[in-house]
Design a protein around this nucleic acid. Structure first.
Lengths: 333, 333
DNA sequence: TTGAAAGCGCTAACAG
DNA sequence: CTGTTAGCGCTTTCAA
């Protein structure tokens, strides 16, 4: 399998430049010679060496994906969207986990440069000035995916998180809920803060009082953290009739904390979360969610990146994907 | 950032070969010159071009991962294990989804060769002769991960699935269960068949009768398929007091089919599954599982691959990771 | 429509 | 301990 373009050229009785041309379609080749070359390729089982190609052409057809953690279901689903579109455009994915640590992220952007990726898809919790600076130094086309950059310095694909927070809260207000818990990640997460802003706005619009006791910040978006912070909340004697949570796992943390106390959903508390991962239909009650188009977030981001790479004119660098509320049993009494 | 090794050499007043040496530590360099070179690297913000490196050295420090679907939680967790160890050894991951389709897999192995990956980590449902042939043609070091090759032609890391099936079934027999359902993927999956063999063995050892009505094959390992096949089973009027399922999602399918009929677990049926993804502790009841060391499956496979790549002597090409039963509430009455 | 030749940025002999 | 010199396998001018 270690044939080179020279072997093919010799076999076909043409020059290697011609082989390169039929391989890439970069120039017109007479049908007859093209056929000869293709026959030679077939016969030898030749495959072009992508590394040599990358060095000569300065385009590797690979794109780097930096995300906090693939084993997080939300990221994994986004990644699947990225990968499908990448495959469609003949790009390969180089994947790395950052654990959302800025130092790792900076480092990874650098090694992505070394790998000569054509572009970068970046998923994280926050875009710090240092990250922006690193992007600039690396001179790589970047698209943020499901990631908020409040200053919109970088092309991005996400939903309108403030509006989504508002919609979620209004949904409960319309249902007549009185005490609505907001359960999110840490205050350092712009995504959480945007949704919280929507929550506050909705309460304000409805003339309701904002009670900070009802805003819960878990230390991350995972089940365990949601469970812990919910437990603490309930232990203090607070109760709520509805919960808006920023991730599917977080809301399940709340649910199980309630269950530990003999409570049930939706009977005792209505639940709504944000991600719409497959968890939502696997668990009981099935979870009402703000349906983020998880797969599409990745797919659209990848598509935007291909446009940047091919210098196709782009109408909008900050893409907002629509969200909607999917009503399931966790909010049906 | 597009400096070359020549720029560094000029800046440091040495030859490019010397720069290469300090970069790779491939030969002794006088401390003094080394310091000069490092200063120049620092000053210019130089980063080596991994593509050029790969072409010249014929080693790309990247390894290909081919798996059915990243958005499947089990695969995602395995992948995280792979990635962490890869990072530790300075390898990068090129990730692709095959949807477990043989034609895609064959194709992907080819493009992985084009990318000149140093090795391959392969996760799939079955290893067909065609796949083995493709591995051979590609002449790439391969390690199978959480994947059964009944003939052990290829290095692999997995648990002992037959033994695990046996243990799971015995667990229920000891609990006094009478009718035990085996709920697996399609019969084409060696993993399912191995576990089923263990199930049958356990029944036989206990002098129990084997009833094929109690063996359910879902069309894949996902929740939906588990739900469907369980529904069909229950609709026919069958009942069971215990279920051994080959994936966490499958068992939840059974659980919800039971719930739809007003049943509960563990009250009406005991449940056990195989993967031990994070689902097991998120849902209620928490699921008793055969704890596959999901993360370790990936981590150990990657480690084995690095050994192959560095021609370190290897004791065992077929690594069996230990499994155990984690008892949770789904089997506690 | 085709071929010759010059790199792409680096590693790895081979000298010295 | 360091420099010179071939390539690695391809793309891409430039001519013809």
């Amino acid at each position: 399998m270690n044939k080179t373009i020279y072997d093919v050229a010799r076999e076909a009785g043409v020059s290697m430049a011609t082989v390169s041309r039929v391989l890439n379609g970069t120039a017109v080749v007479k049908d007859e010679t093209k056929a000869k070359v293709q026959a030679a390729i077939e016969k030898l089982g030749y495959r072009p060496n992508a590394v040599a190609r990358g060095l000569a052409s300065k385009r590797t057809k690979s794109i780097g994906v930096i995300l906090p953690d693939v084993s997080d279901l939300f990221h994994a689903e986004v990644l699947r969207g990225i990968e499908d579109i990448a495959t469609m455009y003949q790009y390969h994915i180089i994947l790395t986990n950052s654990d959302a640590r800025e130092d790792r992220e900076v480092d990874l952007i650098g090694t992505m440069w070394e790998k000569q990726v054509d572009g970068l898809l970046f998923i994280s919790e926050q875009i710090t000035p240092k990250i922006v600076k690193t992007f600039e130094e690396a001179q790589l086309p970047v698209v943020l995916c499901a990631t908020e950059d409040p200053e919109h310095r970088i092309p991005s694909v996400a939903i309108d998180n403030k509006q989504a927070g508002l919609d979620a809260t209004n949904y409960f207000l319309n249902l007549g809920s009185d005490k609505i818990v907001f359960l999110g990640g840490p205050t350092s997460q712009p995504v959480t803060m945007k949704r919280l802003a929507g929550y506050e706005q909705a309460l304000k619009d409805a003339g309701r009082e904002f009670d900070s006791n009802y805003v819960l910040h878990a230390k991350d978006s995972h089940y365990r953290s949601g469970y812990e912070v919910s437990n603490a909340f309930l232990n203090e004697g607070f109760t709520a009739d509805a919960v808006v949570a920023t991730s599917d796992e977080l809301v399940l943390g709340y649910l199980n904390a309630v269950r530990d106390r003999g409570g049930k959903a939706p009977d005792d508390v209505l639940l709504l979360s944000f991600e719409n991962t497959r968890l939502t239909t696997i668990v009981r009650p099935e979870l009402t969610t703000i349906a983020q188009p998880t797969y599409d977030l990745g797919a659209v981001a990848m598509r935007l990146l291909t446009k940047l790479l091919n210098e196709v004119s782009i109408e909008e660098y900050t893409v907002r994907l629509p969200h909607s509320i999917l009503e399931r049993t966790s909010t049906k009494r």
